[in-house]
Amino acid sequence: MTGLIEDTGNTENTENTENTEPRTAAGRPAPAPRRRKPLGVRAYKAFRVAALIAVVIFLVAPLFWMLLASLKTNVDIYDSGKSFFFTPTGENYANVLQRNNYFVFILNSFWVAFVSTALSLVLGVPAAYAMSRFTMHRSALVVLMARVIPGVSLLVPWYYVFSNLKMVGGFEVLILSHMFVSLPLIVYIMMSYFDSLPLELEESAQVDGLTPIGAFRRITLPLSVAGMATAGILSFIFSWNNFMFALVLSGSKTKTLPVAIFDFVSYASIDWGGLMAAATVVTIPIMIIALFTQKYIVSGMTAGATKG
């Protein structure tokens, strides 16, 4: 949303963001020589630890509960005496993966997320570069509008056009619709990344005889790998989690995981164990990715937030 939020002339704040380094570097080692802290400080420390533990429990406990339920039989789920102590079973997972064919949905989700992210990077990175370097804020606004528009208003016309083209139920439509989410995200993140990249490197490369496009390709792009990783990972996650577009535009062959989970409850009575196993199956891959790419996700989520 850079274009919407900030004015054109705010570049001096980039220095501010560099303050992150000293915090972790200088803050942790070598504490001041030990002195007995006053009571207020110690009370605050105890409070802080307690509060942090509460926060962690609040955030993690529901997920833990989902995981537990996915390992219970339906009889155990209904038995409040067996909330935490029960004999775990893998039956739900076997059910979900084999009988309901979740492997296909996993592959579908993965394929759609991967291709839409890759194509969005190809389109979005050069666009973000141009918009950042030439401060095309009005053009950026056009792309970022996509983030603001309610998806439903696009779905009716899309559905009509694509069903006329006999494309509904195919991967192409799903990928196109997911790109619609990914592209603005990637442009947004990459714009703030390019904004923070110094111009001097490109300029000196051009002095050394590279064309502007050559400088982009051989200097700026390699320097932007971290930014592209950030944008790509976030776009992958958003595509993986996307529900509404797939709900309308996917067919029986292209169904993605969120839709598959949703279909799970349309049966007469809810098979809680199976449902929780399905919910776990969809969240686990994305959480594993998140664990390994933590810092990228954080920088992507906060992109452009501390400027202006």
Partner: peptide, 29 residues
């Protein structure tokens, strides 16, 4: 900064990346 910061940060990330539909089902239970 504090000790264990890393783990708290992981905990903060988990709800954020979880699939909303799955989250809905989880809370339903």
């Amino acid at each position: 900064p504090f000790r264990g910061e890393k783990w708290v940060r992981v905990a903060i990330l988990l709800p954020l990346v979880a699939t909303p539909v799955a989250v809905g089902m989880m809370w339903r239970l």
